[in-house]
């Protein structure tokens, strides 16, 4: 079996796709990681301690997976959704009643969104208790905080899109919270709603934020976040540091 894979890895096609060859020596194995777009996020060599489940509980990875699920289901939902006042709510109803697997995908999107907020928050806690905000990872911690805010904002903008009473009043509360900010509150609310009250403009604004601007910004920052994990190191359990110091 392993011989078969060795032969396969020796073919030109394999090499042209994966840019690496034989696994028979450590260099080859290292190159496989190093030359792969997806795998090079991991160091060529990791300590067992740092990839142990309890080290991170894979919370960052789970967040990223949820982000992917949300992007995929979100694109699917976009096919059936009009961000306009007369249509938005009825598109929800159509998803529920006539679109094949519409309910399933909408629920998947919704529960993944809830889960993502929770998991991102737990991820932050884990990082905090591991002390992984300390130098040289301060900047990545800051990026993480920005990503948390983007996650919350994605959740908030998505809440309006069903255009039902729950959505309307939730966004009303949110907008009034912005309004309460000193000095710039009024302007912020106006900017957020695209007017003085929730309406067609707000729906369109939230839709563009939810489907385009926020995911785009999030994707870029997630990329940098990963890159900095790779460069600065991720969570290194405290006890291993202690051991070193001893």
């Amino acid at each position: 079996m392993s011989d078969l894979f060795e032969k396969l890895r020796a073919t030109k096609a394999w090499k042209s796709v994966f840019r690496s060859g034989s696994f028979s020596h450590n260099l080859g194995k290292s190159m496989a990681i190093f030359n792969n777009f997806f795998l090079h996020i991991l160091p060529v060599k990791s300590r067992v301690d740092s990839i142990r489940f309890t080290a991170t509980f894979y919370l960052g990875f789970i967040s990223f997976c949820l982000f992917l699920i949300l992007a995929l289901t979100g694109i699917y939902l976009m096919l059936y959704y009009h961000p306009s006042v007369p249509k938005a709510y009825w598109d929800m109803k159509d998803l529920q009643f006539v679109v094949s697997s519409g309910v399933f995908l909408r629920n998947l999107h919704r529960w993944s969104a809830h889960a993502m907020v929770a998991v991102v928050f737990l991820h932050m806690l884990r990082v905090f208790y591991a002390g992984a905000y300390r130098p040289p990872k301060q900047f990545n911690w800051a990026l993480g905080v920005i990503l948390l805010i983007i996650t919350l904002f994605l959740s908030y903008t998505g809440y309006l899109l069903p255009w039902d009473q729950l959505a309307y009043w939730a966004v009303n509360v949110g907008a009034n919270m912005a309004d309460a900010a000193p000095f710039i509150g009024k302007k912020m609310k106006f900017l957020l709603l695209g007017g003085n009250t929730i309406g067609e403009n707000t729906l369109l604004r939230f839709y563009v934020l939810h489907c385009l601007i926020l995911p785009f910004v999030a994707s870029i920052i997630i990329g940098i976040h990963f890159w900095r994990v790779r460069k600065d190191g991720g969570i290194q359990p405290l006890f291993s540091n202690k051991k070193k110091n001893d």
Partner: peptide
């Protein structure tokens, strides 16, 4: 009328 199940169309639907 847009519903496609008995409960959701002719039944009593919340909201």
């Amino acid at each position: 009328g847009i519903a496609t199940t008995v409960d959701e169309s002719v039944g009593e639907v919340e909201f």
